[in-house]
Design a protein around this nucleic acid. Structure first.
Lengths: 340, 340
DNA sequence: GTGAAAGCGCTAACAG
DNA sequence: CTGTTAGCGCTTTCAC
């Protein structure tokens, strides 16, 4: 049986109130003598406050729920790491769970975390979520009356006071203008699923860059992928077979870029001599500094830290704005070169 | 204000006991009529049980603490994913936090999770933990009187009833005998920090394979690394400069293997023509199926699932044995070839 | 400065 | 079959 506030009150010959007040050092001032005595016996008895009991009264657990599709995905592990790091700094703890990209599981996890009395939820939608499923989640979250933040994935349904994202438009622009600067004009773009806002924004950036270089937008150069390696491979194969004038690829994530590279290698072409390839995310390089892939680095760890900051600020009743400065950066490596 | 058991009792004209019993469907049988009425009003009022309150009485939170050095490391994210997946299946939730490889933070996290009343802790020691720090953690865990499992990293201090590991000896053996089969005899081994048991076991496997092929063990071929890329790079450089007879490398994790490959490329040598390289972990290939690196695959996800199974079984008072069948596998890729 | 008492939302004896 | 009652360990008025 764990030692309680009562036990130490008895031992120190004070009331439970006194112990409670002193342990949370607040309330009326006690004499240094009693303070020391209480603190000391608490330590001597190896007292650990039961936060369940405290939370029942204060209605604050200082816990956050974090829901991601798959923590093994480097993007989400970087994000979760950032959230945890910042939350821990502030004295908070994290319930983390994977939705396995299932909308039903998202719903279930929200309900569980609600029962667990988390004070806030950081939420990355499952990839297959359509607009209607999204509404269901949004409803569940709203019903629970828990502050929440949709991180990087969302649907445009309201004033978006609950959405925190990276600047995907700028990132798409950066990737594309890099290729344009190198002289490429026929640039294939393999996008993510276009029902996702982040995927659409990357495409918007691509188009803005082209416009800026007075290159007209050719819809036949745009291919809707699904962020998986196989999809980059498939589209690249088709392009290699049928569009001889294409000299560069912008794959909207690194996984698809790897697929593109596979296809190019298999066609016995050389990167970057024959084709330039730009990826997106570059989150792997943190651990694996050996990638040859030019890519757009997104400060995902910072996004996580900001996520924690904002949600906790809101829980504390502050008016945390969503304006944050999270700037993508181009990482030039060996997969891009000037057009010959 | 959230709706409580009281609210629905009042609405359904029954006592709180009735509601409680029915919600947890146990205890004495109620008439179908009352059951339905209660369940229905609960649903109508969108009731969500407050698990803090319940746990305060049952002394079970159905939560697990998981402490890892860094969730961005693919090994730990695969492990955490496995734990979460299995735990969720069984109706449990996970507090996850990163120690940033700091022993002090380990200690702190154990204490926090203790306060949070987790029912069990799955614990991956920080990399820099020495034996004395380990003892401190062990003590803290034991004092807390919470079931715990040390996953894959540990010190040999007792009967090891709390340790669950992969078969690193076999894995080291597999890696080395693969190289021996290919005809290599001068095989450099870059180990992990040898104060860690897992690192030592890989080395033991290396030595067993050599012995089996009647190759005498040459201590000068064994280099103690630290599992970081830079350490593989550094040792490989030294070897390339000073040991012309070495033809193969066994790097005891993939990160160091990448470092080795860097060094070899920089020396303008070709893999696998000039040197064969075997890595260890192969956990990245799940997401990035384009690695050229022959590596030892460890079923880390299964280890995670087993971890959850065992700790939960123990919490439930069962005598869960630690004997599990987690077999490493060699993944042959392009970084190894027969000795010319 | 310090303590008594009420009660957070729920479960678990124990009565009826 | 159903209800009354007594807490779980803690915080928080409100007295003294």
């Amino acid at each position: 049986m764990a030692v309680t506030i009562r036990d130490i009150a008895k031992r120190a010959n004070v009331s439970v109130t006194t112990v409670s007040q002193i342990m949370n050092d607040k309330g009326s001032r006690f004499t240094k003598r009693t303070r020391d005595r209480v603190l000391q016996t608490a330590k001597a008895m190896n007292y650990r406050p039961n936060r369940l009991a405290a939370s029942l009264i204060t209605r604050q657990t200082k816990t956050l729920g974090v829901i991601v599709p798959d923590i093994r995905n480097p993007f989400f592990s970087a994000l979760a790491h950032g959230i945890d790091e910042r939350a821990t700094e502030l004295g908070w703890s994290i319930f983390l769970s994977n939705s396995s990209d299932s909308h039903e599981k998202d719903l279930h996890l929200i309900s569980v975390m609600n029962s667990l009395q988390v004070d806030g939820i950081c939420f990355c939608l499952a990839g297959n979520t359509d607009e209607q499923s999204f509404l269901a989640c949004y409803q569940e979250l709203t019903d629970a009356d828990i502050p929440f933040l949709l991180v990087d994935r969302y649907y445009e349904i309201d004033d978006m006071q609950n959405v925190l994202t990276l600047d995907h438009e700028k990132a798409g622009y950066l990737a594309t203008s890099h290729l344009l600067e190198l002289g490429h004009r026929r640039i294939a773009c393999i996008t993510g699923p276009l029902h996702l806002v982040d995927a659409r924004m990357r495409l918007v950036g691509y188009e803005r860059a082209l416009a800026e270089y007075d290159v007209s937008i050719d819809e036949t150069l745009i291919f809707e992928g699904n962020y998986r390696q196989e999809s980059g491979y498939r589209h690249a194969n088709w392009i290699l077979d049928t569009m001889p004038d294409v000299t560069a690829f912008f794959a909207c994530n690194d996984l698809m870029a790897l697929g593109v590279m596979d296809a190019i290698e298999q066609a016995e072409k050389i990167i970057p001599n024959d084709f330039s390839v730009v990826g997106y995310d570059d989150v792997v390089s943190e651990y694996f500094k050996r990638s040859p892939l030019t890519s757009i680095y997104q400060p995902v760890g910072d996004l996580g830290r900001k996520t924690a900051d904002i949600i906790i600020a809101r829980i504390n009743g502050a008016e945390a704005t969503l304006k944050v400065d999270l700037t993508p950066k181009l990482q030039r490596r060996k997969s891009t070169a000037p057009l010959l």
